[in-house]
Design a protein around this nucleic acid. Structure first.
Length: 427
RNA sequence: GCCGCCGUAGUAUAGCCCGGUCUAGUAUGCGGGCCUGUCGAGCCCGUGACCCGGGUUCAAAUCCCGGCGGCGGCGCCA
């Protein structure tokens, strides 16, 4: 229930019949409308026979609008009651609904995904996507307030960040092109003219995964900032952004969180910084095997998450990844072994990764060669580093993964309206 | 790509191991009846299902093979 609605004396409200119950000569109808909680309409045969008749003959799923005002007596535990002055039925279902929307009968994730557009009438599903909306709004608000410019970069590209194995191919007239798996190279190029940019963007990844935390089309908040003193500047932006988002949702989506049964703690910065070697040591001392020089496995990340949570760190950075496990574009430390790449983990799940980039032209060409890549294939990218590229860095923050951890979703598919995974292309 | 598990009314499930009273049970939905405020209300009646193809057998939802579909784990990564 939105408080402001109660101030207005009369209004027209619309939605779909979610639940209906007749008890003798009283009919109670719940309408899924603009709020998380439904509107509750009550018809009493002895008081208003016409309204009683209309309400009691409404099939579940009917699209209706009604005029009225909030009832003085609020008896329902599930929504806001209204005194109905008039009601109009705009559409009735052609056949009974394929899924039960109230939650009496559980439905499999597969069914939930198939009928997501319909299930959004259910308060729980509605709440998930209202939180998603808030996350995007909070991110945009925070970044705009901190001098970042929102940009849009192409999603049809000639090459990916690191080769073509994980890219979707598309036919681009007589040439072959790909769907962008990351806006990173474009963000970096832009930093040669606009010091701070961000983009809220899809990522397309052609990996044939079938796990609870991968999608083939996902969305991210991608940030790049120039004229940095070091990687800490980038990490500051990320941690403040994440804290802002979580606190924003915590303050503004109380009803959604309550509906989802989620309690979000207030988040404060700075987040813990954990050196990659420290993470490895912690894991090994807890009996978890970690191969030398490689990135952490999912299993290792989850175990680390448990250990860190026990120490009071739900959110923590892992910093200083070995160069052999990272992309060519990360700046290397003097020792040539470590890089300025970091991950941000939230309860054992990587929700963002980024770092300081190599902005020196010669070093970048050298890095490409060392990684066995042909600089000629990156000429459009390299050119941007010739004319005064400032020291810079950035990150990509996965929206669905952030949602998973914030809301305790067990499958990333719950966080997207229309799922694109290994097997789903429709709806 | 590799490994494991699963496919029963619209939805969610029982039954499958040990083949036969399974004429396939239950909940919810849907149709009908009762009840003057339910909160997943309740009570009564009705309705509707064994993924597809082959095999074994006197007999297959149940056992075997293939296909299709789904779920999960691993590698990759946000």
């Amino acid at each position: 229930m939105i408080g402001s609605y109660l101030v207005v004396s009369e209004m027209r409200l619309c939605g779909w019949v979610l639940r209906s119950k007749t008890i003798g000569r009283v009919v109670i109808v719940e309408v899924s409308g603009g709020d998380v909680r439904p509107y509750v309409l009550v018809g009493k045969q002895d008081v208003n026979p016409d309204l009683y008749k209309t309400l009691s003959s409404l099939p579940l799923g009917s699209a209706v609008c009604f005029e009225g005002e909030p009832a003085k007596e609020q008896k329902s535990k599930r929504g806001t009651e209204f005194e109905v002055k008039s009601i109009k039925v705009y559409a009735e279902p052609v056949e009974p609904l394929p899924v039960e929307l109230v939650g009496k009968v559980p439905s499999l994730l597969e069914t939930r995904i198939k009928y997501r557009w319909l299930l959004l009438r259910n308060p729980v599903e509605k709440a998930i996507f209202r939180v998603r909306q808030s996350i995007v709004q909070a991110a945009r608000e925070y970044l705009l307030n901190n001098g970042f410019t929102e940009v849009h970069t192409p999603k049809i590209v000639a090459a990916g960040a690191e080769g073509g194995a994980t890219l979707f191919k598309v036919q681009y007239f007589e040439r072959e092109a790909y769907l962008s798996q990351s806006p990173q190279l474009y963000k970096q190029i832009l930093v040669s003219s606009i010091p701070r940019v961000f983009e809220i963007t899809p990522y397309f990844r052609a990996e044939k995964f079938n796990t609870v935390r991968h999608l083939n089309e996902s969305w991210g908040i991608d940030v790049e900032q120039g004229f940095i003193e070091g990687v800490e500047d980038v990490m500051n932006t990320l941690e403040n952004l994440v804290a802002y988002i979580i606190n924003y949702v915590r303050d503004r989506n109380k009803e959604e969180l309550e509906t989802l049964g989620v309690e979000l703690p207030r988040v404060s910065t700075p987040f813990k910084r954990l050196k990659f070697e420290e993470a490895v040591d912690i894991l090994r001392s807890n009996g978890i095997e970690v191969p030398e020089g490689e990135d952490l496995s999912d299993h290792a990340e989850r175990e680390l998450g448990k250990i860190m949570s026990e120490k009071g760190h739900d959110l923590y950075f892992i910093v200083g990844f070995p160069w052999q496990s990272t992309g060519f574009y990360y700046m290397r430390e003097e020792d040539g072994y470590h890089t300025r790449k970091f991950d941000l983990d939230f309860r054992g799940l990587e929700i963002a990764s980024g770092g300081q980039r190599e902005h020196r032209y010669d070093k970048l060409v050298e890095a490409l060669r060392l990684k066995g890549l042909d600089p000629a294939n990156f000429s459009f990218y390299l050119e941007a580093f010739k004319y005064g590229m400032p020291p810079h860095g950035g990150f990509g923050l996965g929206i669905e993964r952030l949602m998973m951890q914030m809301l305790g979703l067990s499958n990333i598919r719950e966080a997207v309206l229309f799922v694109r995974d290994r097997t789903r292309l429709v709806p």
